[in-house]
Simulated assay, not measured.
Amino acid sequence: MSTRLPAVTVVGSINLDIIATTDRLPTAGETIGGGVLQQQPGGKGANQAVAAARLGGSARMIGAVGDDAPGRLMLAALSGAGVDTADVEVLDGGATGTALIVVDRDGENQIVVCPGANAGFSLEGVSFGPDETVLCQLEVSLPVVLDAARRSTGFFVLNAAPAMDLPAELLERCDLVIVNESEYQLIPALAGANLVAVTYGKDGSALLERGRRVAEAPALSVPVASTVGAGDAFCAALVLAIRAGLPYGRSLAVANAVGADAVGDPSSQPALAPLEDYIARATESSVASR
C-alpha cells in the first residue's frame, strides 16, 4: 500500500548558486587556481521545495526572486521540478539572491549568501490551510519566519540554519526543528524545544524531545560529490516521513538514505527517487525507534 504524503509549503530562500569546484578549500587570503565554475538553481528554501516534490510530495514555494534573468531561471527550475510557484513574488528592480560556493574534492564547502530579493518580501495575502505542513529556514528575514509561524495552524517546521538566537515564541510554535550538530551547539535554547532532529554527518542523525534522545539512525557510507544540497534533501524527507506517520527511527533512516543519495550528486537540487523507494530501504532492524 502506498504512503500518503502531506502537502508541504516552503517559506524560504531562492538563490542562484555560483559554484567553484577545487581540489581543496582556500585559507584566509589564499588564491587557488584550477577551479571549475558552474551555475545552478539553489537556496535552502528552493532546494527543500524541489526535494519534497521529487520525493512525491505536493510542494508549494513562497519566496521572492528579482525581475532578472536569474530569477526567471529559478522560477523555471522550480516549476520544472513540480513545485507550485504561484506565491513566489517577482520584485521589480530587485536582484535574485546569490550564493557563492566553493566545494573541494571531498565535497566539503564554504558558502557566502547574498540575499537580494530574499530579504525583501512579505507574507501579505498568503494563507495556509490547516492540513498544510509549513517548512521554514533562516535565509529569509526572521520577521517573515515569525509571521509564517503565526499564520500557520498546521504542522510547523523550522530548519534553524544559518544558526542564530531564536525568539521563545518561535521555538514554542515549532512542532519540529532540524539542525546539524554545530547549529545545535550554537542555539542552546534547542535543548528545551519540543522536538529537534540533529544530523551528525557520518555518525547519522537523532531526534530529541526536550533534550532527551528518543530515536536515532546510522548514516550510510557513500562516495561524496557535494554536501551542498544534502541537508536540504534530508529536511524534506524527514518532514514527509514524519507527517506520513512513520515512526521516528524509521523516519530518520529514510531521511538519511535520501541525504546519502544527495551527497552523490553535485547539484544543489539533486535527482531523487520517490520516497516510497527510500522507505523500502530503511528496514526496522537498522534503526532505533521510539
Rank of each mutant, 00 (worst) to 15 (best):
T3E: 14
P6I: 01
G12N: 04
L16Q: 03
T21H: 14
L25Q: 05
L25N: 10
L25E: 09
T27V: 12
G34A: 05
Q40I: 12
Q40S: 14
G45D: 09
A49N: 00
R54A: 10
G56I: 05
M61W: 09
D68F: 01
G71E: 06
G71T: 10
L75R: 02
A77I: 09
G80Y: 03
G82M: 07
D87R: 01
G93E: 12
I101S: 03
I101T: 09
V102A: 15
D106V: 15
N109W: 07
V112L: 12
V112P: 03
V113W: 07
A117L: 02
A117M: 05
A117E: 00
N118H: 09
A119Q: 12
F121N: 07
L123D: 00
F128P: 00
D131L: 05
E132D: 01
E139C: 13
V140Q: 11
P143S: 08
L146N: 06
A148L: 12
A149T: 04
R150C: 14
F155H: 11
F156H: 07
F156C: 08
A161I: 11
A163Y: 11
L166A: 05
L166E: 04
E169A: 15
I178V: 15
V179W: 00
E183N: 00
L190A: 02
L190Y: 09
N194P: 07
L195F: 08
T199R: 04
G201Y: 13
A206P: 05
E209T: 14
R212G: 10
A215P: 00
S221G: 13
V222A: 05
P223M: 10
S226Q: 12
D232R: 01
A233I: 13
F234R: 02
C235I: 05
L238N: 00
A241G: 00
G245R: 04
G249P: 10
V254I: 06
V258P: 06
V258S: 10
V258A: 10
A260T: 11
A260W: 09
D261H: 08
A262I: 06
V263D: 08
S267A: 15
S268F: 03
S268E: 10
A271Q: 13
L275M: 14
D277G: 03
A282S: 15
E284P: 06
S285H: 12
S286V: 13
R290L: 15
